[in-house]
Design a protein around this nucleic acid. Structure first.
Lengths: 259, 259
DNA sequence: AAGTGGTCTAGACCACTCG
DNA sequence: GAGTGGTCTAGACCACTTG
């Protein structure tokens, strides 16, 4: 159903897993339009036979496409290309820099302050700090194509990022610095967003009118183990920032589809 | 590491898959606190040996826990209980009724209007309607514990829900009706949220002050195939509604963790 | 009846981590 | 070197869908 000549393209010596090579081949066909929404992707048996892999390997490739949302399986019928718009444009746990670049604009920032201190209870408890433990506080006005869109205040445990104030160039991406210097990789972000109004100080910094609509965020980011590694409070102009989410529905408690 | 006596609890005659039974056992231990955050969950080999299942089955059980976010695996080290707060309280693609109940409150609604008509281009194109195709429009004030919190306007293709106006009791859950009468199961919702202000009409309906902060939503819901089955525009009081999200970070294009 | 995905088995080799 | 998770094989039985 779509892998007649693909035999040649599997590299069995490669360190890249076979199921991942197959996934990429099929993903390419879907993204290029060679396989259209609603059409069947190759079946597990077809892939196994044509590419000379075991059925479990073919299955793993198809399963990964379903997990990504670009395909879906129906028992007894087959696996089909999803009718959904591609996942482009939907929010993941991205930094401001990544998110802005992804939307085709140029990110920037103006540092308001950058220092270390012992934070209040809200910050300390969210980051699970020990008593008297210090954090860096980085306050920045964030810019999109040089226009101010929001004010971010990041709290970062000093313990996790020693000498961050020396190593980090505030004109660059914070996440990139945390990744490069400390091997920190964000896995997940919890976020609360509320509607509010700009106060006079915020309005001045954002070159907007006091009392204009605003989005207020409280975000906590975690690495894979679940350790909290960043706490951020921010305010964005309501007319220049919006939230674009894709929410999924977990059937019950599983994610593997028991019905 | 946590399944010494569990042998007895696997039912090999059951229609419930073995991996799912194992997942539930481990999930119970995690939720009950018998397995604490950071501790190793049983290894694949342990489960396979102790419960007399193949390693692939044990692996599938652990994988499903990782997909849910309650555990994580590190190559060469093991699989551990996540330090994250449980997923309770984070938004999925839920109906207003489900979401309100989940937070322990009582949902309600007051119907403003309910009729069918041929919609404008925005609604028609989002729902991929044919020319002149009709939709139901259901406008409701949504209540939490009898207090108005938002105004929702739902557009539903008549083609998908014939005679909905006869079958649906507007004092009940819309999603429940769509599920019961038409077998419709929401799989995913795309959502755009913006900050705004209540106009005088909205303020009157919500018993709030005109110009008060508000959250504006535009939501489109899809079934598994990716077919759009509902389009909703809504306005919520900023002081009684907030967005609670959990955003994940997709490594590259896969969801299976190739690094 | 033939094809599909869902589950399961009993092995295997590998790269990785840790003591 | 022992234990771990990541990948892979070559089978198997089942429930389900469709012609």
């Amino acid at each position: 159903m779509g892998c007649e000549v693909d035999l040649l393209r599997l590299d069995r010596q490669s360190v890249v897993p076979l199921y991942y090579q197959i996934q990429q081949i099929l993903l390419g066909k879907i993204r290029s339009g060679a396989l259209k929404p609603g059409q069947p992707v190759a079946s597990e048996q077809e892939i196994a036979a044509n590419l000379r892999v075991s059925r479990m390997t073919a299955r793993q490739a198809l399963k990964s496409l379903c997990d990504m949302g670009v395909a879906y399986s129906e028992r007894g019928k087959g696996t089909f290309v999803s009718l959904l718009k591609l996942e482009k444009g939907f929010r993941q746990a991205l930094s401001f820099t990544e998110e802005t670049r992804a939307s085709g604009s140029r990110p920037g920032s103006k540092v308001l302050s950058f220092e270390s201190f012992v934070p209040n209870g809200e910050v300390a408890s969210t980051l699970r700090l020990k008593p008297e433990e210090k954090v860096f506080r980085l306050r920045r006005v964030r810019l999109v194509d040089s226009a101010p869109v929001g004010i971010e205040c990041s709290y970062l445990p000093v313990r996790l990022y020693p000498e961050l104030d020396r190593k980090f160039d505030p004109s660059t991406s914070l996440y990139r610095a945390l990744s490069e210097f400390y091997g920190m990789h964000i896995h997940l972000t919890d976020e609360v967003a509320e509607a509010g109004l700009l106060d006079t100080r915020q309005a001045r910094l954002l070159r907007a009118a006091p009392g204009a609509p605003a989005l207020l965020f409280t975000r906590t980011s975690y690495v894979q183990s679940g350790e909290a590694v960043e706490y951020v409070k921010s305010v964005y102009r309501g007319d220049r920032y919006r939230i674009v989410n894709r929410l999924t529905r977990r059937n019950q408690e599983s994610s593997t589809g028991v019905k």
